[in-house]
Design a protein around this nucleic acid. Structure first.
Length: 238
DNA sequence: CGGTTTTGACCAGCGC
DNA sequence: GCGCTGGTCAAAACCG
């Protein structure tokens, strides 16, 4: 289970069709009437991949860890969406280092890796849906586009400071950094395809569940620790 | 003792 | 209407 900074209470578990692993349902217990829920399910193709789906918006302030999670999600989503393949090698070192040195990149994914039991990359396509639409490239059909065109952009965990911060310029540089780090990872594509196949069905057969609230997913790969389980995080909104 | 987890039952939506 | 499936409820068990 990923520690995303929030408190969750499990309220159900079901066996999902086509997946030997059960799906667990959690509710946020940080506030009395917080409507946020999340579903956690392992990828059928690769059980080391954990798929987490968030739904709803928190109606209470988030702790720093959760805020970091939100920031990381947004950045990673932008990264994946940009599909940039620019080889900015100079950015690789700090990007990889951020996984190991949270204090250096406190507002990015570093803190996330510190709070999670294993390295994790979170994605939030709800935050950058429109941006993604502009950046979408034909050679990246593996990315589900179910969120494209939706008017809302407020993601589930963006109730914190990020919502009010002019984070765009700073996010842009982050996008480049993370994109370089991940797109050069040979394991990333395979893991992503496996995760998407598990959640969305066979890739290439659909543009995503149109009309669905599902956002997207993103597996985490850490070259330094290939035996670590991976994680996918999905955000959705209503 | 209070909060969390487990687990079977219940309900709603959907396709046939 | 019926069966299947996903999601939720709620009582009992569990745990610190």
């Amino acid at each position: 289970m990923i520690n995303d900074g929030c408190q969750w209470r499990k309220y159900g578990q079901k066996m999902a069709k086509g997946n030997p692993c059960p799906r667990a349902y959690y509710r946020c217990t940080m506030a009395i009437a917080c409507p946020v829920r999340k579903q956690v399910q392992r990828c059928a193709e690769d059980k080391t991949i954990l798929v987490t789906t968030y739904e709803g918006n928190h109606n209470h302030p988030l702790p720093p860890a959760a805020t970091v999670m939100a920031n990381t999600t947004s950045s990673a989503a932008a990264m994946l969406l940009s599909g940039s393949t620019t080889s900015e090698d100079s950015l690789m070192a700090p990007a990889a280092g951020s996984f190991l040195h949270p204090s250096t990149y406190a507002s990015t994914m570093a803190a996330l890796s510190a709070s999670a039991p294993f390295p994790t990359i979170t994605l939030d396509l709800t935050q950058t849906a429109n941006q993604l639409q502009l950046l979408q490239r034909p050679q990246h059909p593996v990315v589900p586009l179910s969120m494209y065109g939706l008017p809302q952009k407020l993601p589930g965990l963006m109730v914190g400071p990020q919502a009010s911060l002019p984070f765009r310029p700073q996010q842009q540089s982050m996008v480049e950094t993370v994109t370089a780090a991940i797109t050069t990872d040979p394991n990333f594509t395979a893991a992503l395809a496996a995760a998407i196949t598990s959640v969305m069905g066979a890739p290439g057969t659909t543009n995503g569940a149109s009309g669905s609230n599902a956002a997207s997913i993103g597996p985490a790969i850490v070259p330094e620790s290939p035996q670590c389980p991976k994680s996918c995080t999905t955000f959705s909104i209503n």
